[in-house]
């Protein structure tokens, strides 16, 4: 039983390292879209790993921890996608390093409507 707890603790530590790196990326990246990239991926992965480690430590808590993992894994990408799309329509600028922007080209060619309300 002791070995399971140690495995769980190591997994939790890895998760918290991922969370820390995500927050570091949030500070270092140059524009909103890159921040969302690192923020979403690392925070989802970090939280899921933290909860997975706790499942190893307390096998009796598996129900609620599993619900939390599922919920974070589904809701976090959706909310950041909605945020990114609406920020783009609102006109948050891209960074200078950006090489190509197909969405702006298509909006200019009238292939895509500039605002849509399909949430």
């Amino acid at each position: 039983m002791e070995i399971l707890k140690i495995i769980g603790a190591v997994i939790t530590l890895m998760g918290s390292i991922a969370l820390f790196l995500g927050a570091l990326g949030l500070v270092r990246m140059p524009d909103l879209y890159n921040r969302i990239q690192t923020g979403t991926k690392a925070s989802t992965f970090g939280t899921v790993l933290t909860l997975l480690g706790l499942i190893f430590i307390f096998p009796g808590w598996v129900g609620k921890l599993f619900i939390l993992m599922l919920f974070v894994g589904i809701s976090n990408p959706v909310s950041s996608h909605v945020l990114a799309r609406n920020a783009y329509r609102y006109g948050v600028p891209l960074s200078d390093k950006t090489t190509v922007d197909r969405l702006a080209e298509d909006i200019e060619n009238k292939e895509v409507e500039p605002v849509n309300n399909a949430l």
């Binding site: 790196l21 990326g25 270092r28 890159n34 690192t38 891209l94 960074s95 090489t99 190509v100 197909r102």
Partner: peptide
């Protein structure tokens, strides 16, 4: 993500593709 965030030069080349 870890590799990109840690390296001091910030190796990114972003863009929007279709």
């Amino acid at each position: 993500v870890t590799r990109r965030v840690i390296s001091p030069k910030l190796p990114i080349n972003p863009g929007i593709v279709k």
